[in-house]
Design a protein around this nucleic acid. Structure first.
Lengths: 338, 338
DNA sequence: TCTATATTTGGTATCGTTAACATTTGTATT
DNA sequence: AATACAAATGTTAACGATACCAAATATAGA
């Protein structure tokens, strides 16, 4: 049904190769022929069959993005939608195809990656950190699957390429900021203890607290939901000697803290300072600007895609690791201890 | 580098065709040969080249999803992430490939669709409603591009397949609910007037208000942001004879209304009832359960993908339109007029 | 045992494109 | 005008799989 390169060649009275050249290397074709072929292409509404092209070139021009889709993760954070949107945009701009995949059963995802790559469906994969286990990563390395991880993987001993935000630094500067406001008892609502995000934040917090022996950090683990933030904040704020500031791993937790503060009639920032890490977009909901660490996490997708694109298009090796700079953004949720 | 069907055939001592049969129609192969070939496949770690397979079969097995990516749309609503997640999941389960695309410049998106289909990159497209103009849709029809729209398109005269929530009904039952609570002056924070969502909601509201002549509907247009909801709610609630209830197009607006109500010291639901349409996930943030219309919008992606899959896999015609049922979910944000 | 039929396997062409090489045409130089 | 070289075009083979048809082998019934 659809017209092929041969149809165009016949109509234009040239060989198929000349048509191919007209499309791919027009500088090698005379102006007269170029014109003739172009007219034939238009007349037949010819579109080169990408599949045939890929077969002969023998390389996939698509980036696979693998996402975990447990519904609450999607529902409660804009991280994944931002990531996919960014990568999609990058691919569209760079004439690459973006394919999205998700796991069906938890265990076989590395099998899936190998399959995708070896079947030539994708030229490389972008994986999101918590969804792939260490063993799987090792396996992928051994199978020479080109991949890059968004978020720091659990192991660093192996040569695993990733991009992440500098969460250690984020933890440090957040607490540093609170110290400058005179806070010495600080609540710390961290994420789940098995996430590298949480591990890194804690490391950052610990680092700064080593230089301030009088500092007291009251850490609580949460699952990064509003509800959990609310409950843990209530616990912290109802103790005898309550903290004067709370650092939350993300802004959804900060909203939970605000809810708890409201309930206890604590004014922000007069009675309680709040500072947050990753901004997932929930902070907008607060009646004041939330002081937070700008992690530029929306850049993660772009960087990962760039690395992958360089590998796919020019076979450049994938950089081992990239850490994004973080910086503090002052809002109206932090104040001096009264 | 990678092994081909011929390599496997050689190793197993059979023809390439037999290997192909082993993979695709094992019931036509003797048990003995099956075994032999399977061993060779494993030994060589053979994976059929999808590209070659697609070429000979001459049909694309992928669904293209087109998304608008103006950043605030992604940032403020979980609609797009939910949609892509659902479709991705469906594709993974049905052995289809999901490709995502976004527009580079506003005007050429229909050109892009034609290109994608004719180049055999995709077997069909799922488009999101506001991102494609009526003219483009007509053009796609004329080019016989298989597509389905999520959300009601602006024109219905042409044979345009779509899936949407029954927003007309949603508008009706929301107001009906408020009427049952005795409300007669009702604020209505609608979306942008050019969105079919807004048009449909208004139609539903108008329909019910025709049966209740004493009903007063105070409609205001918003851009579906928190800020806008807050401002418009303030305006409504500061009038001489303020409405006793407000119906918002989505839950983010409802959060804005809550903010305004707090500021004016109006208790919910004692002083003001709030009911919301589409739940984008922001409603969770409120300290009470928001009464809303359950639009099951997370089903939209599934249905669209199902239609597309049936077309791609079995060439079944794409159904013209599907409207999802809506139902009222009672929360704690509506009360009787005092 | 022989034929008829079912089961299993193999050979060749093909999908639509580009790579590699071969050939022709054009242009400049002597 | 003859030669040398560059530019433009054509020819053939290949990418890796499956479709289609032909051939071989096995099985059953007479």
């Amino acid at each position: 049904m659809a017209s092929t390169i041969t149809d165009v060649a016949k109509l234009a009275g040239v060989s198929a190769q000349t048509v191919s050249r007209t499309i791919n290397t027009p500088e090698l074709v005379s102006k007269k022929t170029l014109d003739k072929v172009q007219r034939a292409i238009n007349a037949l509404d010819y579109h080169p069959n990408i599949t045939a092209r890929l077969l002969v070139n023998n390389k996939a021009r698509s980036i696979g993005l693998f996402m975990p889709f447990s519904s609450d993760q999607v529902k409660q954070s804009l991280f994944f939608s931002t990531l996919s949107a960014t990568i999609c945009q990058f691919c569209s701009q760079n004439n690459l195809i973006m394919q999205m995949f998700t796991s069906m059963s938890r265990e076989d995802s590395s099998q899936l990656f190998v399959k995708l790559f070896k079947e030539r469906q994708v030229g490389g994969l972008i994986l999101t950190c918590p969804s792939v286990s260490n063993e799987e990563l090792i396996y992928l390395l051994s199978e020479k699957i080109p991949f890059i991880i968004v978020g720091r993987p659990g192991i660093l001993t192996a040569q695993i390429p990733y991009v992440d935000v500098d969460n250690v630094k984020a933890g440090t500067i957040a607490v540093e900021h609170l110290i400058q406001f005179g806070h010495r008892r600080i609540g710390f609502l961290n994420g789940p203890s098995n996430m590298t995000l949480s591990i890194d934040l804690r490391e950052g917090v610990t680092a700064i607290s080593r230089s301030f022996p009088e500092l007291e950090i009251l850490e609580a683990e949460t699952n990064l939901t509003l509800e959990c933030g609310y409950i843990e904040a209530l616990k912290l704020l109802q103790t005898e000697n309550r903290p004067t500031a709370i650092f939350t791993a993300d802004d959804l937790l900060a909203v939970g803290v605000k809810k708890a503060a409201d309930e206890l009639n604590l004014r922000i920032p007069e009675d309680l300072s709040i500072i947050s890490g990753v901004q997932n977009g929930w902070g907008h909901i607060l009646p004041y600007k939330l002081t937070h660490v700008d992690t530029q996490f929306e850049k993660l997708g772009d960087i990962a895609a760039q690395h992958m694109a360089r590998y796919i298009l020019h076979e450049e090796p994938i950089n081992l690791s990239t850490l994004l700079e973080v910086r503090l953004v002052e809002g109206q949720s932090c104040g001096y201890v009264s």
